[in-house]
Design a protein around this nucleic acid. Structure first.
Lengths: 228, 228
DNA sequence: ACCTGAACACCGTTCAAGT
DNA sequence: ACCTGAACACCGTTCAAGT
C-alpha cells in the first residue's frame, strides 16, 4: 500500500465507474481496506483528486512521442505535446474533466498543462526555438485555451457523466437516436434539419485543424517584436 | 415559492458560497423552508443543477446587445453573442463551470451554447447570412470550442473553487504573491524568470484576439464549396 | 395544496483502540 | 507501523403525517 497505489486505483475506479462514483469508502473497499486506512497515504479526498490530476498529466512523461525539448522544430514539438495530452484525455475520458475543474495551484498554471514541470518544458522549448519571452508566454496561453476547449468537448461526447453528482450504475437509458426528445427538437426547424450533420463526429480532424490554425497564429507571434 | 424562485436562489447561493457549498438542506434554509419542500418544485438535485445551467444561458435573452438574428452582418452577430456569453460567465464565475461540466442532453448540444433555442439562433443566423449547412455546423463547433476554452480559463482565475468538493467558508489563505510555493518554483528556472509575465491578466484582449482569429477561419469556411 | 418529522442509506473525517 | 470500530456531523431522498 502506498500513496501511488491509492492514486492509481482511484484513476482506474473513475475510468470504470465515473467521477461521482468515487468515494473514500468504495476506494478503500477496492483496495481491501477500510476507508479510514487511506488517510495514512493521502490527507483527504481533495488531495486525492489533486493527486489524480497530477498523475494524469505527469503520465505524459512515459509517452515516447512527447519530447522534452524540440528536436525537429517548435511546431513538431508542440504537435507532439498536443497529441500527448489528447491521448491522456481519450484514455481517461471520465477523469479528464478533473484536469479542467480542480482549482489550479496558481492562476498562471493553466489546465490542461498545469504542472510546473510541463510549463517549464513548454516555455523553455519555445525560448530555445527563438521565441521572445513575451511570445512564449502568449503562446502558452493560446495553446492551453485551444487544448482545453477542444478536449473537454471531445471527452464529453465519450464517457462524460462528470457532474458534481450522478448515479453510480446509471444505465444509459434512452436510445441515442432520440436524445433530447424529438418532440422538442421539432420546434427548432434548423436544428431539426441539420440533425444529421450535427451528430457527426469530426473530433479528430477538428483537433488537427485547430492545432494548425494555432501554430499559424504562433508563427506570427514569434515574428513580432513587441507584445503588449 | 416556485421552481423559478428555487433556481434563482440556487444561482445566488452558488455565486456567494461556491458550488460545493450548495446543498438541498442549505438551499431550503435560504428559502425559509425544509429541504424536503424543494422536491415539490424540482425532482432532485441533478435537475436543479440542470435548471441552473439552463437559466444561466437563457438569461442572455434579456441581453439587449445580443441579437436574435443578424442585423449588421454575421460577424457582428457572432461577436455580440460571444460577448453575451462572456458577460454571463463573468457575472457568475462560480456557477459557469456547471455549464461546461453537466452532461449535455445530446452530443451535439455543445457547451457553452447548449440549448436548442440558442443553437437554432446560431445556425439560422449563419444560414441567413449565406453559410452553407455544412459551414454553419462547422462554425458552431469551432465557435463553442473557442468560447469554452477561453471562458473556463478566464473564470477559473476569478472566483473558481469549482471542484466536486470544497470547504464552504474557505479562507483564501496564502499570499497570492507566493502561490504554488516559491521553493518549488525556483526549481524551474524559466517559469521562475517569466513569473511576472505569466501572472499578468490579459484575458480581455486574448478573448478579442481569439474571436477575431475565429471569425477569420469562418470566413474561409463560408467560402468553401464542399465541407467533408 | 403545501410543508414537516422522522427515517434510511449513504458521505468525509477523527480518534481512541486494537494488533 | 498499520489498520479498524465506533462515532460525529453532515448528505440526498422517501414517505407518512400534519395543517
Amino acid at each position: 500500500m502506498s500513496r501511488d497505489r491509492v492514486i492509481q486505483t482511484a484513476i482506474a475506479f473513475i475510468d470504470e465507474h465515473g467521477l461521482p462514483g468515487l468515494t473514500m469508502r468504495r476506494l478503500g473497499n477496492e483496495l481491501g481496506v477500510e476507508a479510514m486506512a487511506l488517510y495514512r497515504y493521502v490527507p483527504g479526498k481533495e488531495e486525492l483528486l489533486d493527486g489524480v490530476v497530477e498523475a494524469l498529466i505527469e503520465s505524459m512523461r512515459q509517452d515516447e512521442d512527447v519530447l522534452d525539448t524540440p528536436s525537429d522544430g517548435w511546431q513538431d514539438f508542440l504537435i507532439r505535446l498536443a497529441h500527448g495530452v489528447r491521448r491522456v484525455a481519450l484514455q481517461h475520458p471520465k477523469a479528464f474533466p478533473l484536469v479542467a475543474s480542480r482549482p489550479p495551484e496558481a492562476p498562471w498554471l493553466r489546465p490542461p498543462l498545469r504542472s510546473l514541470a510541463w510549463v517549464e518544458v513548454f516555455l523553455s522549448g519555445l525560448l530555445a526555438e527563438g521565441f521572445t519571452e513575451d511570445a512564449a508566454v502568449a503562446a502558452y496561453r493560446a495553446y492551453t485555451s485551444v487544448l482545453l476547449g477542444h478536449l473537454l468537448l471531445e471527452v464529453s461526447n465519450h464517457g462524460a457523466d462528470v457532474g458534481p453528482l450522478d448515479a453510480l450504475g446509471e444505465d444509459s437509458g434512452d436510445d441515442p437516436e432520440e436524445a433530447a426528445d424529438a418532440s422538442t427538437v421539432r420546434d427548432y426547424p434548423v436544428v431539426h434539419r441539420l440533425r444529421a450533420q450535427l451528430s457527426q463526429d469530426h473530433a479528430a480532424t477538428e483537433f488537427e485543424e485547430s492545432l494548425e490554425e494555432l501554430l499559424g497564429r504562433m508563427t506570427l507571434l514569434r515574428n513580432e517584436h513587441s507584445q503588449s
